[in-house]
Deep mutational scan, measured.
Amino acid sequence: PEDLERKVRELQKNGVSPEQIEKILRRDGVDEREVQELVKKVS
Rank of each mutant, 00 (worst) to 15 (best):
V42L: 14
V16S: 06
R9T: 03
L4S: 02
R33F: 08
R33M: 09
V35C: 04
E2L: 13
V30S: 02
Q20M: 12
E2P: 10
K40G: 10
Q36R: 12
V39Q: 03
L25R: 00
K23P: 01
E22A: 14
S17R: 06
L4R: 05
V39G: 02
E5A: 11
E37A: 11
P18D: 08
K41A: 09
V39E: 01
R26K: 07
V30D: 02
S17V: 03
L38C: 05
G29C: 08
R26H: 04
L11S: 00
E10T: 11
E32F: 07
Q20V: 09
E2M: 13
E19L: 07
L25S: 00
S43L: 15
I21A: 01
V42C: 09
I21T: 01
R27L: 10
K23D: 11
Q36P: 02
R27Q: 11
V8L: 04
V30W: 14
L11P: 00
D28T: 08
P18G: 05
K40W: 12
L4Y: 06
R27W: 04
D28W: 15
E2S: 14
K7W: 14
L4F: 05
L4M: 06
R6V: 07
E5W: 15
S43W: 15
K13D: 05
Q12E: 05
D3Q: 09
K13V: 05
R26P: 00
E32P: 11
S43H: 10
N14P: 00
Q12G: 04
E32K: 04
G15K: 04
N14R: 14
N14C: 12
K40R: 11
Q12V: 15
E2H: 12
S43G: 08
R9S: 04
P18H: 07
S17A: 08
R33K: 13
S17T: 11
V30G: 02
Q36T: 06
I21E: 01
G15Q: 02
L11V: 00
R26W: 04
V35H: 01
L4A: 04
N14Y: 10
I21R: 01
K13W: 06
K41R: 11
Q20P: 00
G29R: 02
E5G: 05
K23T: 11
I24N: 01
V16I: 10
N14G: 07
R33Y: 07
K40C: 09
D31N: 09
E22K: 14
L11N: 00
K23H: 09
D31Q: 06
Q12D: 03
E32N: 04
R27D: 13
V16P: 00
I24S: 02
V39T: 03
S17D: 06
E2R: 13
Q20D: 14
V42K: 03
Q12A: 15
E19Y: 06
K7N: 02
R33L: 08
P1C: 10
G15H: 04
V42W: 09
V8Y: 07
D28P: 03
D3P: 06
D28Q: 14
K7A: 05
V16G: 01
E37K: 08
I21Y: 01
L38I: 13
S43E: 09
E2Y: 14
P18F: 14
L38Y: 05
Q12F: 15
P1S: 12
D31M: 05
L11G: 00
V35D: 01
R27P: 01
V35I: 15
R27H: 08
R26V: 11
L4E: 01
P1H: 13
G15S: 02
P18Q: 10
V39C: 11
E5C: 08
P1G: 12
L25P: 00
E37D: 09
R27F: 06
V30T: 03
D3L: 10
D3H: 09
E37L: 08
N14E: 08
L11C: 03
D3I: 08
S43N: 10
V30A: 07
G29T: 01
E34N: 07
E19M: 07
L38R: 02
K7I: 09
E34L: 15
Q36G: 05
K41Y: 06
V8F: 06
I21L: 04
I21Q: 01
D31V: 04
K23W: 11
R27A: 14
L38M: 10
V8R: 02
Q20W: 08
G29Y: 02
V30E: 03
K41D: 04
V30P: 01
E37Q: 08
K23C: 15
S17I: 03
Q36L: 08
E37Y: 08
R6A: 12
E22H: 07
R9I: 06
E32D: 06
V35E: 01
G29Q: 02
E2C: 14
E37F: 07
Q36V: 08
R27Y: 05
P18Y: 13
G15E: 01
E19A: 11
Q36I: 10
K41M: 13
Q20A: 09
G15N: 04
N14H: 11
K23S: 11
E2I: 12
E22G: 07
E37C: 09
Q36D: 05
S17Q: 05
E37V: 06
L4Q: 03
L11M: 10
E10L: 14
V16H: 13
E22F: 13
G29A: 02
V16C: 12
E32S: 06
I21D: 00
V8D: 00
V42G: 05
S43A: 12
L25M: 04
I24E: 03
D31Y: 03
E37N: 10
I24R: 03
K7L: 12
K41I: 11
K7Q: 05
V42N: 05
R6L: 09
D3W: 13
P1F: 14
K40N: 11
I24P: 00
V8H: 01
K13A: 12
L38S: 02
E37I: 09
R27I: 06
R6H: 08
P1I: 13
V35G: 02
S17N: 04
E2V: 12
D28H: 14
E34I: 15
V16Q: 05
E10M: 13
V35F: 06
E32M: 07
R9D: 02
L4I: 07
V8K: 01
E10G: 05
V42I: 14
Q36E: 09
E34S: 12
R6F: 10
